[in-house]
Computed example of a mutant assay.
Amino acid sequence: MSLTDNRCRLVLIVPDIADAAERARIVGDALKGGDVASVIVPQYGLDDQAFQKHAEALVPLIQEAGAAALVAGDTRVAGRARADGLHVEGNHEAMTEAMEKFSPKLIVGGGNAADRHHALEIGEAKPDYIFFGKLNGDIKPEAHGKNVALGEWWSSMIEIPCIVMGGADPASALVVAESGAEFVALHRAVFEVPERAAAVIAEVNALLDEKAPRFGA
């Protein structure tokens, strides 16, 4: 059993870069930094054809690094790119529909769980994970307090794993880990300076190895 199996792990959110090859290079280099559980690939403003091109460039290199590639948005793009899963940003109905269509063939999770009521509604669909926060919600150095509190509440009583959006400071990952959440999502904290992305991932993993609480301890 590795050190990462029983503590909060990293989820990366791919940065918004228009050039597919440049984006793939930056993400590929970042993944050399250490353990990453999964990588979410948002559509941002790309049309479906461009998003398809980006997904086909990103998915294989994410998988080669040992992480799960989760496409947010277009389910057809996810299928054609052979992604491991779908990140659903919609409500309970969208999650239920995605689970019925794609689970268990694909990992299906996400949700727009802004409060406990909506979280429990989304949880009724029994997704593979629930996401607290917005994919681009890391506008401050620290993780949003509401999302951390939701993660703490959820992980204390419900078995479905949760991902909590971190802040723009890599150290925010530890605050999320201390909430009991199984995963922390980082975006700007890793990719703000692309040349340092791998080093930041290594530093965050070292921090979590040293200080994150252990599940079942």
Score class of each variant (00 low, 15 high):
A55P: 03
N147P: 00
V27K: 05
F215E: 14
G85I: 06
N91R: 07
E56R: 14
G73S: 07
A78S: 07
R196L: 11
E203N: 12
A149Y: 01
N205F: 09
D35T: 04
N147Q: 04
P141F: 02
K32Y: 09
G90R: 00
D169I: 03
A69V: 04
I40E: 10
L3W: 03
G133K: 03
I13G: 04
P127D: 00
S179V: 05
A18D: 13
N136H: 07
V11P: 05
T96I: 00
P42N: 09
A199G: 05
R116T: 08
L150K: 02
G79S: 11
A202I: 00
L174D: 05
D47T: 11
Q43N: 10
L135M: 14
G166A: 05
I201K: 03
R80F: 11
H54E: 15
V204N: 04
A50W: 12
A199N: 03
Q52P: 00
G109I: 01
C162F: 02
A212M: 13
G110Y: 00
A81K: 00
V88R: 01
I107S: 08
E182R: 15
Y129T: 00
E210M: 11
G166D: 02
K32T: 12
V59Q: 01
G110T: 01
D19W: 02
N136F: 06
R76L: 14
D5S: 12
D84T: 09
I122W: 04
S103G: 11
R196S: 15
G145R: 14
H117C: 02
A173E: 02
N6M: 14
M1W: 14
L174E: 08
M1G: 03
V77N: 03
R80P: 01
D115A: 12
M1H: 12
I26Y: 00
G216V: 08
S2H: 15
I160N: 00
G66N: 08
R82P: 08
H187G: 06
A189M: 04
F51L: 12
D35V: 04
V41P: 05
E210N: 12
D35G: 01
A78R: 03
R76G: 10
K105Q: 14
P194L: 09
S38T: 08
V164I: 06
L174M: 08
L186G: 05
F102K: 09
V193T: 15
A171R: 10
V36D: 03
A168H: 07
A57D: 15
S155K: 07
A197I: 09
W154R: 05
D115W: 07
G85D: 01
S156D: 13
A185D: 04
V27T: 11
D115I: 08
C8E: 04
D138G: 07
L10I: 12
N205M: 05
P161E: 01
